[in-house]
Each structure stands twice: as C-alpha cells, then as structure tokens.
Design a protein around this nucleic acid. Structure first.
Lengths: 264, 264
DNA sequence: AAATATAGCGTACGCCGTAAAGAGTTCAAG
DNA sequence: CTTGAACTCTTTACGGCGTACGCTATATTT
C-alpha cells in the first residue's frame, strides 16, 4: 500500500546526469554497470510493481550488486527518479510532427495525437502518475516534448499565455482521466477480481444500506451505467468522451480568435 | 519523499464502520477513544504532513495511547483511510442546491459550483489526491455527493450514460488541475523556497544546456509566461481557464441535444 | 465473589534509504 | 616491478513503517 512519491533529487546533480558529458577514462576497477543500465532496471521494476516496489535494494539485486554500489553511479533515489522520468519521455519523440498544411487548420488532430501519446505513456508507466510535475528537472526529452506541444498550438492567434494554458489543460485532463484507467487495472491485478466479480461481492453490502428514495438519480444512473459498462466505470470510454469535450471547448476559444475577422 | 497510497481496507469492515450502528453497551473497561476521535486526529495529521506522515504510531501518540490500541477501534490503516475519505466528503454537503428555475437553464452555474467545491476539498485535504477512486467504499457522504452531482446534470436531454460521463469528465479535470496547485504549494513548503527563488537558482543550470535554436517556441513562451506568472506556473489561473473551456465543451454537447428542436 | 468480555500494552518481524568505513581492483608514476 | 592514488563495491548500522501475538488490567454480568 505504500508507494514512493516524486520529490526529485538535487537539481544540480540530476542535471549533470541528464546533460553531462559521458566521461570514460577512469583510474580504478572497471565499472560493472552504467547509469543507463540502472535506469532501465529501475523502470522495469516500477512498471511491474509501481514506485512502491521500487527500492535501491531491488534494483541492485536485479543487477547483481549490493544496494550501496548503486550510489557510485547515482547520488540517490531522487536523482534516479529524475533520470527515469526523462528517459520515458524519450520513447515517443518523433523527429517532426508532419505539417500537413500551413498549420492552423489541423490543430485538433495535432492535439489529439499528442494527448493520446501522453495517455499511452501513462499506461505504459503508471508510476508517472505519482511523480510531481511541479518544478520538474528538465532533461533533454522533457524539454523537447514541451516544445513539441507548444508548437502544436502555434499559429492559432492565441497569446503565448493562452498557448501555455491550453497545453496545461490537456495535460491536466489526461492525467486525471488516465488515473481512472490505471487504478481500475491495478485494482484487478491487486485483488485478482474483475470489476464484475468485485461488484457481485460488494453489491449485497451496499444494498443493505442504500436508500433508493434518498438518492433516486444515483440509483437510476448507477443501474443504467452498470448495465452499459458491465462494470462501475469504463475508463477508456470516459477518456474518449472527455477528450472530445475538452477539444470542443478549446475550439470555442480558437473560434473567437479567428472570429476577430468573423464577428467584427 | 515516501507517501502512502490509497488501497482501501476490507470493504466489509469499512462498510460496517461507515454505516454500522453506534453500539455502546459493552462489558469491559471504558474505552478511552472513539472511532470519530481517531479519524479526526488522522485527518489532521494527513492534512499537515500528507499520507506520508500518517502512521498508526503518530495517530496513537497524538491521542495518548499506543499504536496497537487503535486496532481495538479500527481493523487497520486501510479501513481508517476509508472512513477518513467519507468524513471529508461530509464537510460541504448542502441539504439542497437551491433550484433557481426549473433546472435546465442553470446547469453551468451548478456544475461550476460543485467543481469549485471539489477543488477546495482537495486544497483542504491534499492527501485525497493519493487516494484511489476505483472501487471506492461508498459511505453515506460519498453516496450523497455522487447523487448531488448527477442531479446537477439532470433534465438536459442527456442520456444516463452521458450524465455519468459529464460528471466523470469534471472530476477527472479537477483532479488533474488541483494537483498542480497542491504540488506547487508543497514544493514551496518542502524546500522553503518560493517559485521565484527556486527559479533563480535553477535558471543558471538550465542556461548551460538549453538550446534556444532547437526549441524556439518553448524559449519564447517560457519567457512570456515566466514574466506574466512571476513563476513557472500559475495553477489557480490554469484551473479557471481550464474549467471554462471544459464547461464550454460540455455546452457544445448540450446544445446539440437541446438543438433537436433547433436544428431539425 | 466469581466468571467473562473487552481495552490497551510490549515485543517482534521484515521492509525502507543511505551514512560511514573498509576491502578489493586498476592504473600512472618512479 | 613497486608503490600509491583513484575508484568500485561491500558490510554494518540507524530509526521508521504496519501489524500479529500474547499479556495484563478493568468493568460488567452472574
């Protein structure tokens, strides 16, 4: 039940790891490991068992060394997490998003594509949900991604601040939405019960206390969605629905800007 | 850096705590405590120091007993968290949202009000961000809140499933958005540095590696937002902006429904 | 007064991150 | 080839976590 939470390490140390020169001519014994190997092992463990399962001892064990020898390569667990973060943001960097036309027309497709990439990244690496995004240590991949998302809303007559607000809105929404999907998957894995099995064991408990007269709308909607989803929620469907509504809302804003020629 | 994460306890035990009769005639020595007192102490600790700071030992210490004596009242930490959750949802239950007109016209004000309440609840109790919402143990307050939110989107010609999707969208968005605000506040508290102080220590590190020619849009927008926000982000402003866009998007959907009379 | 149910306590286990100190390994200089 | 510096990796140790188990002290019922 316990899990690690973000935090990040010392920014200076992390920046050195993320951008530093690949020093090689050393004096002592040959290093058994590299930072990259350690980071890969740590990502694998976190993917499988969450940040809760990620410990220096486990990473070390998987690599055939003791926990303390990792501190030769990495200042501490916080800095390791910083490097893990930037590493997974490098997985889906495309050299260029193909600019179909001039740029203004296809904003919706561009944002939809980037947001789906973010969704999938969270699905591949659910521990990202636990990593604080405030004051991030900007590695090369995080930086490139930030630029890429801003480029997607360039040329729409939005101010720079509005561009930032739009990509923040999408980032916030996708984080909230993917959380439902990840938690549902984890609940199934953790308990070994499907949503349906869980519900059929939980429903009798609820029936003993639920007062359909006090909560008539919840009773009706819960009934309908339960039959439709065959579960309490359908996170993938919620994401598709929500994404379209959010893009619609962004469209309303863009319309008023382009509309400076339309509406006087 | 370590923090607790959701999980919830045994549903049956938790439901008994949440809905059970307040049994009192006992045989043995007078109990020093009540479940309610334990829950209040636990909420206070979690508010101050996060789920990371919440331990059975600390709760017990604050109440003047040992950790193990808490297990007389509560089956375990998971169930305690379930009760904490339902308790804080009881803070802002209004007996009735005042129905100004028939109901259909003021959907936007109703949803805005409920979403702001959710935002404020997360601000008061940031540890809620760490509590899994999948398969929640439905206490009386959680249940009432769910019903209340559904009532707010009743009568808009939406299907039951769409009603569920709309309130899920808002719940997902507010979760994602408030996270930025909470993390910014926690970063300041944890490091003892304001965003501005942090930035002035971080900027030199970044300048050494940042290539403005590779990331021209990020360079320009980062400059503008930095001056406008006097920080890297402005979470409160992001939330206001995003909330209006999301409500606009929901409005587009509602328009097409009401528009079954308007657009043929 | 005796029986019994309950409240609260002390101890113990295996985890965690990492500080400190020491042992083993490789290379450059004499 | 020898020596000493530089470096890698290991061992040990600390205080914290949730909670299982067995115990004592207390209040009520018989």
């Amino acid at each position: 039940m316990t899990t690690e939470y973000s935090g990040t390490g010392d920014p200076k140390r992390s920046m050195e790891l993320l951008w530093g020169v690949p020093d090689r001519p050393r004096r002592g014994p040959k290093p058994k490991l590299t930072v990259a190997r350690i980071v890969q092992a740590a990502i694998g463990i976190a993917d499988a068992d969450g940040l809760a399962g990620l410990s220096m001892r486990r990473v070390a064990e998987q690599l055939g060394v003791t926990a303390m020898s990792l501190y030769t390569y990495v200042p501490g667990k916080g800095e390791l997490l910083d490097v893990m973060l930037d590493t997974v943001y490098g997985e889906d960097l495309t050299p260029d998003p193909p600019p179909a036309d001039g740029g203004a027309a296809d904003w919706r497709a561009r944002l939809e594509r980037l947001t789906r990439q973010n969704y999938e990244r969270y699905r591949r690496h659910p521990w990202l949900l636990q990593v604080a995004s405030s004051r991030p240590v900007l590695g090369p991949n995080l930086m490139a991604r930030w630029n890429q998302e801003l480029v997607a809303v360039e040329g729409l007559d939005l101010t720079d601040v509005e561009m930032d607000l739009v990509i923040t809105l999408l980032a916030d929404y996708v984080h909230g939405a993917v959380r439902g999907a990840v938690e549902a998957a984890q609940a199934e894995q953790r308990t070994g019960m499907t949503d349906e099995q869980w519900w059929s064991s939980y429903a009798p408990l609820l029936e003993q206390v639920f007062d359909a007269e006090r909560f008539p709308v919840a009773a009706r909607v819960g009934q309908t969605t339960g039959e439709e989803y065959q579960a309490a929620t359908d996170p993938a469907r919620s994401f598709e629905f929500g994404l379209q509504r959010v893009l619609d809302g962004i469209g309303v804003l863009i319309q008023t800007r382009v509309g400076s020629a339309d509406r006087t």
